[in-house]
């Protein structure tokens, strides 16, 4: 290792400063949001930079009661259910695709993976029609089912890669011990595949949690809305109470940032395993 030369030190300081400034442009708006949530409307309008004269907690309480609470619970329910269903259906599908060889298997593989290329946005109108004829419109299932369907191809793709790389010896041993194929799936394959399941669950959860367009079109009742659409609704509702709205934004962002900080490592690994978002 060589010693750091003065020139290198200067470069280091300059680059660090730049990195730090960039970090500030990301952190500052978020902090600004949290602070403005504590101010009154008038304060906000007279000086957008300022600190609150009195910290108004009421904004946060109001935002929570005006809708964030409901939206939050809805988002949790929709996301959790969708994630569970996505993982179950995709792992079964990947198990089938990697363990059995039918004549049509190749075709099925192309069929499933081809689904990755289809954008949900293209289908929003026909899906709306479909959900309506199935009497699912304006229920949480109107979100959950399309969410799951559109995530299956990608998650199956991820799991398939993992399942293919798994050693077969244990499965064979289990088979000799008299395990059925489902038993093998449940007791051997799934436990080994836990890392990829966790990754898939995180990736899917991130997409579902932030999904906006389906939530906008397939849900009518305010009591069923998820956070992203609910926030848009709040913007229309709190037209005259900006700081309450901002408090609502902060309330929606903080939990997800906390979750991110808590399981950052897993999320990072998951994202890189996937290499695809949205």
């Amino acid at each position: 290792m060589k010693k750091i030369s003065p020139a290198a030190l200067i470069i280091k300081i300059v680059v660090l400063t730049l990195l730090f400034i960039y970090a500030l442009t990301i952190i500052y708006p978020l902090i600004w949001m949290v602070i403005q949530g504590f101010r009154t409307n008038r304060e906000f309008f007279s000086d957008t930079w300022g600190m609150p004269q009195v910290w108004v907690y009421q904004n946060y309480i109001d935002a929570w009661n005006f809708g964030i609470r409901t939206y939050f619970m809805n988002s949790v329910f929709v996301t959790a259910t969708s994630v569970v269903l996505t993982v179950i259906t995709s792992s079964l599908l990947a198990f089938f695709l990697t363990r059995y060889s039918f004549k049509i298997s190749k075709l099925l593989l192309v069929f499933v993976l081809g689904g990755m290329m289809l954008s949900p946005q293209i289908s929003v109108i026909s899906l709306f029609q479909l959900l309506q004829t199935m009497n699912l419109y304006n229920t949480h299932w109107a979100l959950i089912i399309p969410y799951v369907a559109f995530r299956i191809p990608f998650i199956t793709f991820l799991m398939r890669g993992y399942f293919l790389g798994m050693p077969r010896e244990i499965e064979e041993a289990a088979f000799i011990d008299g395990c059925s194929s489902f038993g093998i799936f449940l007791r051997v394959v799934l436990p080994i595949a836990r890392p990829i399941i966790a990754t898939s669950a995180l990736l899917a959860a991130m997409t579902f949690w932030n999904e906006f367009m389906f939530g906008l079109v397939f849900i009518e009742s305010d009591s069923l809305r998820t956070i992203p659409v609910g926030l848009m609704n709040l913007r229309g509702t709190l037209v005259t109470r900006w700081t309450t709205l901002i408090a609502g934004l902060a309330l929606s962002a903080i939990p997800i940032i906390m979750v991110f900080l808590a399981c950052q490592k897993q999320l990072v690994r998951g994202l890189t395993a996937g290499g695809v978002k949205g």
């Binding site: 409901t70 619970m73 809805n74 949790v76 329910f77 996301t79 959790a80 259910t81 304006n138 229920t139 949480h140 009742s221 009591s223 069923l224």
Partner: peptide
């Protein structure tokens, strides 16, 4: 998450 939603599931399904 699943437990947390039990509370909301009931009223949520009502309007649907």
């Amino acid at each position: 998450l699943l437990f947390a939603t039990c509370g909301t599931a009931a009223p949520a399904t009502d309007p649907s």
